[in-house]
Design a binder for these strands. Structure first.
Lengths: 250, 250
DNA sequence: AAGCATTTGTACGTATGTATT
DNA sequence: AAATACATACGTACAAATGCT
């Protein structure tokens, strides 16, 4: 004993080495969004691997949302700006494979959204507050005109709030989870019987939240937003799971 | 006008079609974790594509964490149980590429953790509460013995809380964000000058949280946990960003 | 505006190391 | 212990698509 402690060497595939190097170049900033990778034939020379290996590496990088390659493009694969698409994809499969329930997703939205509102109540700019007011105004207008624009205005409101929270992680997760929830219940929500009443109630709730924010009472605004979301979605969630949601209401 | 509305057809690659079909089979449940895909040669027959196409598809599926293939395995690629590895990966790149600040990450932890505690205060089982108490006990013991076991016990505590919240999404995100934060400051935390004082303070905070939970006061427990996390990490965060964190403290 | 050179997408054959039976 | 089936990797070839002249 006392000899050198060797670590087990996992046979790392050639394409993985290529992926690692390109990933490193991108994350370190030496390769910026918009720039191009060398062509596949160039890459196989630089890495001294076969074309298939290069291609498998490119497919992995593409799956991770880091690059995009198009047939015939003489400029090589394009380095993409980061987008939460990959995050969105993995959360969606999580929702499908792991049987993430609608209740859990709504609960998560309640948490994220109320936190964003709590933060926004203290950190928002006046311009952002004006945006929120305008979004609610559009919601009011949409009650008469159409049902699509109501949803869009609602999304816009929560988008501003998430942005005003100043936390990119909250912003991204809010966006991802919201779109998943909306996809899950889009068909149900369209033909709800008391749809107009729901819209009016939602608008009233949003107005209360805005009032609390204007008064500078972040905790109250956060509490109201949780209640608002519960009231809006409870109808689509089995009664047995309601207690897990009401546990968030003070 | 009034004619059929055609959608633009993007030339979808052959390997994408393969990915889609396998993905569909897994998410629909007709392929369960542990089961094996046909061999590559078999797949090229079934999809009537070349070997390279099959391999590129497998690389993408592997990158998404759905399958794993090993050289020489006569059984073909294995369908994996879902793991948050992909989620973890994309959040990590997010943290690096998008310059997600430590303050934002800690803020997100404060949000998730306090929500988990709020939920756990009402939904926990007695066994889970006992686990929490035992974790804090191990933290106390670790002040004398070693610094590693303190961190482990702390992680264990927050793991039980996340589990007790009953929300898988909270559980997964908590885990992911915590590991990222710990990786970012692992070197700094090891040689903090007043490390022992920090540990004792942390233990006191955990005990207060437990007391509030025992008393059934979820909101208080949540508030205390936010304060606890702020006190623990504030030293590693630039003072200019402290206001964004204190905005979460009532 | 059309054609040309280059690149990607796909296919096929082959060699080699590895895990299972 | 040998045989078998497999994944990994390499090389070549051709069609389709793209950008440039």
């Amino acid at each position: 004993m006392g000899g050198p402690r060797f670590e087990p060497v996992r046979a790392v595939r050639a394409y993985e080495r290529v992926v690692e190097q390109v990933e490193e170049a991108i994350e370190s900033g030496s390769l910026s969004p918009g720039e191009r990778l060398p062509s596949e034939r160039e890459l196989m020379v630089q890495f001294s691997v076969s074309r298939s290996t290069v291609r498998e590496a490119l497919r992995v990088l593409q799956a991770r949302g880091l690059v995009r390659s198009r047939p015939g493009d003489p400029n090589g694969a394009e380095v993409l700006p980061f987008s939460p698409a990959t995050l969105h994809k993995s959360m969606t499969t999580l929702a499908r494979v792991e049987e993430l329930s609608l209740a859990e997703l709504v609960q998560f939205r309640m948490v994220l959204d109320s936190s964003a509102i709590l933060l926004a109540a203290r950190l928002r700019t006046d311009a952002q507050f004006a945006e929120m007011e305008s979004a609610v105004a559009r919601m009011r207008a949409a009650v008469e005109t159409g049902q699509d624009s109501f949803g869009e205005a609602d999304v816009a409101f929560h988008d501003v709030v998430a942005r005003a929270s100043g936390n990119k992680l909250i912003q991204i997760c809010t966006d991802v989870v919201r779109s998943i929830v909306l996809k899950l219940i889009s068909e149900k929500i369209a033909d709800a019987p008391d749809r107009e009443a729901l819209m009016r109630q939602s608008i009233r709730h949003h107005e209360e939240v805005l009032a609390a924010m204007r008064a500078g009472d972040g905790p109250l605004a956060a509490r109201l937003s949780r209640k608002a979301m519960y009231d809006y979605y409870a109808g689509y969630i089995p009664a047995a799971e309601h207690p897990t949601l009401t546990a968030l209401l003070d």
